[in-house]
Simulated assay, not measured.
Amino acid sequence: MTGQQWTMLLLLGLLLTVISLPVSDSKKEKRTRSGILEEAEEDMTDRTELEAKLESILENTEGAGQVQVLLMTGQQQGFYGSGKIEVTGVLISAEGADDPVIVRNIQQAVMALFQIEAHKIKIMKMK
């Protein structure tokens, strides 16, 4: 082997060694962790706002009476990694839930609003 080939082989080995070394950036990790916490807090705020809006709409619906709403949410990842809130289940307690017509109207409204199936919605009679 010539001197130039030995030099290339040495440089290639050095490059592979450098690439295989673990790299840790504690500032970046801290930013990532705090970013995740901030996103979770934002999701919680959004979910609470969604719940309040849905409660308000349903309470203004004829026959529903007083209403309480709990939304189960998940994170759906988009193409560029930006997540959006996805409603995966809905629990509703309503005064008017003893009337099957009211229950069906509430269920259809929730299905249309969140694009979820009927089996992911539970409507119960409030005492």
Rank of each mutant, 00 (worst) to 15 (best):
111 M>W: 03
64 A>Y: 03
86 E>Q: 15
57 I>A: 12
124 M>W: 03
86 E>M: 14
79 F>D: 15
124 M>Y: 09
30 K>C: 04
96 G>V: 03
124 M>P: 00
57 I>Y: 09
94 A>K: 01
73 T>P: 04
103 V>Y: 06
39 E>V: 07
1 M>H: 12
102 I>A: 08
113 L>H: 06
10 L>G: 07
78 G>K: 03
3 G>M: 11
75 Q>W: 06
90 V>I: 14
113 L>F: 00
91 L>G: 11
66 Q>R: 15
127 K>W: 13
114 F>W: 02
109 A>F: 14
39 E>Y: 00
9 L>H: 00
20 S>Y: 13
103 V>R: 15
20 S>K: 05
123 I>P: 00
15 L>D: 00
121 I>H: 08
98 D>R: 00
89 G>V: 03
34 S>W: 04
79 F>Q: 14
80 Y>T: 15
29 E>D: 12
114 F>D: 11
11 L>C: 11
81 G>Y: 10
24 S>Y: 15
43 D>L: 03
8 M>G: 01
61 T>A: 12
82 S>N: 14
37 L>Q: 10
64 A>S: 09
105 N>R: 12
98 D>N: 07
118 A>E: 15
6 W>V: 04
21 L>K: 09
38 E>F: 10
10 L>F: 06
39 E>H: 01
23 V>M: 05
111 M>E: 15
69 V>W: 02
101 V>E: 15
108 Q>T: 01
60 N>F: 14
59 E>H: 09
72 M>L: 14
39 E>L: 02
22 P>S: 03
17 T>K: 09
89 G>L: 08
41 E>D: 09
110 V>F: 05
37 L>S: 02
6 W>K: 11
14 L>C: 06
18 V>S: 07
71 L>D: 10
119 H>Q: 13
72 M>N: 15
122 K>T: 15
70 L>T: 14
113 L>D: 10
76 Q>Y: 08
31 R>I: 01
62 E>A: 06
14 L>E: 00
46 D>S: 06
24 S>F: 14
91 L>A: 12
25 D>L: 10
79 F>T: 14
1 M>N: 11
100 P>K: 11
17 T>D: 02
76 Q>D: 12
60 N>Y: 13
89 G>W: 11
2 T>I: 06
126 M>L: 14
113 L>M: 12
104 R>L: 12
75 Q>K: 14
10 L>W: 04
63 G>K: 09
120 K>M: 05
36 I>M: 04
9 L>C: 01
86 E>H: 11
64 A>H: 07
45 T>Y: 04
3 G>P: 02
85 I>H: 00
92 I>E: 12
1 M>I: 10
50 L>P: 05
102 I>E: 04
35 G>E: 03
50 L>E: 04
91 L>K: 09
28 K>S: 10
13 G>S: 13
4 Q>N: 10
98 D>A: 10
68 Q>L: 08
77 Q>F: 11
127 K>V: 15
106 I>S: 09
112 A>Q: 13
50 L>A: 02
20 S>P: 01
30 K>R: 13
43 D>C: 00
32 T>I: 07
110 V>I: 15
65 G>Y: 06
40 A>K: 06
58 L>D: 01
60 N>M: 12
26 S>F: 05
7 T>N: 02
70 L>R: 01
98 D>C: 00
16 L>Q: 07
110 V>M: 05
25 D>N: 14
